[in-house]
Design a binder for these strands. Sequence first.
DNA 1: ATCAAGATTACCT
DNA 2: GGTAATCTTGATA
Length: 213
Amino acid sequence: MNDFELTTDNGKTLKLIKLKPAFYLRNATTVAKALLGKIFVRKINGEIFAARITETEAYDGRTDPAAHSFIGKTKRNATMFESGGLLYVYFIYGMYYCANVVTGAAGEGSAALLRSMEPLKGIEQMAFNRFKKREVSRTEIKSLLNGPGKLCQALNLTKKENGLNLNGEEIFICREKRPRKFEIVETSRIGINRGTELDWRFYIKDSGFISKP
DNA sequence: ATCAAGATTACCT
DNA sequence: GGTAATCTTGATA
């Protein structure tokens, strides 16, 4: 079942194809850019969440002082050192989680941080996870997934999902059979103190679902 | 044992 | 634009 149809909350049908394992076995920057426009799917308790990835950041374990993995393998960052295609989720600032896609070869320590998405399916449940209510305004829909901490809260990504394989059935990423065209903006990464000279933050131009335009 | 920092967010002026 | 909230981790003693 790598080829299937998904109906969004606004009634549109998307033809989706699950990404192959090889997709993740490339450079962090390559994968981070390639993830833009892809559809993140999470199945939980019989319900499906789906969202279009609109903003990512690359972290390279071998050369990048901003990467968690730069200091070497520890208990916290161990997932980053696995082979590409896993989900790396970590806890930060005492109250938020951030989710990454592990990239490259085993031992490399590279990943792409998922920073923002456009909600497509399961919006009521996402709203409940974020705001404890199911009714959301147009403005609130935009702020459902536009930040790394927010999207983890809305999609219920926690410690439990750390290390999960994206080639499985619970959480995975798809491409559309007929992908939309878009331009990619490359800027410096947000919220870090080192490696700020690298333009390794990527987002879809004019998306409207971005943490900081 | 203690401690500072952190890939953030919400709410304030 | 500023800052409080909140706690795990990794480093140092």
